[in-house]
Nucleic acid binder design. Sequence first.
DNA 1: CAAGCTAATTGGTAAGACCAAAAAGGATTC
DNA 2: GAATCCTTTTTGGTCTTACCAATTAGCTTG
Lengths: 252, 252
Amino acid sequence: MSDVPAKTQDRLYQDLARNLLEELASGRYPVGARLPAERELAISYAVSRPTVREAIIALEVQGLVEVKVGSGAYVRRLPGKGDLPGFNITAFELTEARLLFEGEAAALAATQATDEELAQIEGLVDAIARENLQADGAERSDREFHLTIARATRNTAIFDAIEHLWDLRSTSPEAALLHEKARTANIKPVVDEHRAVLTALRARDPNAARAAMRAHLAQVIDSLLFATEERAIEDARRTARAKRARYTQATS
Amino acid sequence: MSDVPAKTQDRLYQDLARNLLEELASGRYPVGARLPAERELAISYAVSRPTVREAIIALEVQGLVEVKVGSGAYVRRLPGKGDLPGFNITAFELTEARLLFEGEAAALAATQATDEELAQIEGLVDAIARENLQADGAERSDREFHLTIARATRNTAIFDAIEHLWDLRSTSPEAALLHEKARTANIKPVVDEHRAVLTALRARDPNAARAAMRAHLAQVIDSLLFATEERAIEDARRTARAKRARYTQATS
DNA sequence: CAAGCTAATTGGTAAGACCAAAAAGGATTC
DNA sequence: GAATCCTTTTTGGTCTTACCAATTAGCTTG
């Protein structure tokens, strides 16, 4: 029935955390309110207190609640979209966001990057070229290339936000798959695009850097589109096979 | 001695999580590696197994490790800057990042926002005006204003990243304080700036929206600068008072 | 050598106990 | 009568022990 692989399962604390998350989202516990005591939650949800503690810690790590010793757990902020389970960002949204944000980051980096960082980036461009020859994947250099530019902005918030976007990719299996597919299907131009960004950074030209970065990520979006169509064909084939199977079964 | 209020203290699991985080950052456990068993960690860190579990869950929620039942905890990714404790983003970095990112978001929103969203944003501008009259703080409407625009981009990744930036503010006590100070010192122009953004969105003019949003956040940066200077003066006064107190004590 | 089974390992959860911090309530004092 | 202090209760923090379930390693067996 379900499309998800079900993964590890178990993890009772996650169920509880999900439930509490929904209660927060429902507005039952507004900001500043105190959650029921651990012992009460344990009883009402029919779990042990350690499990309750684990769930509350999960919320605490996400900054949703604050635990005060001897007092209770208080709501710090209400859950946003990113906190809701089953929340998936598409590869297109992700790349569009990167196009805008990393474009600006490149522009800023063009005015801030040190010679050392530029040399580092050049090394990464070479590494990307090498990685593309061997098809074993691992776009680690690609990630480092983009993060190094983000770091070169000298703005930790910008770096953190862009790193956050890269991390989001791995939270969505579909997005990760699509990216991998797009990468293997589109090898040659990538190095040139990366080198164009580097050239613009070297020239200390913010507008050129922004344009080069945007062009690169626009190309990535195109690759994603291509990969999507490929997959659409596969899906159609699979559907046809399933259809035929049902027919065969029904008539046998 | 220390400037921080020490907060809640306790939380043994946080110490452990911090230690494990450092071990991850040190490269001792590369991606894919398995962490020692819970029972082993409990012994080597001289804590109980529930505490170890809590620490591992803290890492798990942050996406750093993946726990497989009956097998162990495996490293999913290495910690980035945002994961490191004691990591503080300055209010300036944060606002600069917002200037760039939210500027682009506003430009995109100008082409995507629905009439309903525009009406919602107008209501928030009015709410901001009302909140400014009563000095009790709570810039909730301000946050909603910016997040609603981010949502109007129809891009979940953009929304999530911008929400992430807002959340970062609360992780840094200094940044939060500075913002509050800047807000109380600078009341009048804010509403006009917000309304200018709304006008540009209404006109479906991306460039005007970007410019208005950037102008607004540039103004915020100015306010922060002003608040910083104010605080510098206060610090100087406090230092002088302390100096005099020591002198008085020594000569009495 | 391969397949299958058994036992050890490892995470998941429960239950009970005790400590320390905080809050609540009552007694004392001014 | 009000404020203050102290005792009691509540609440989170941690440990210990125990048992279950999934996984893995190792051995047995064909």
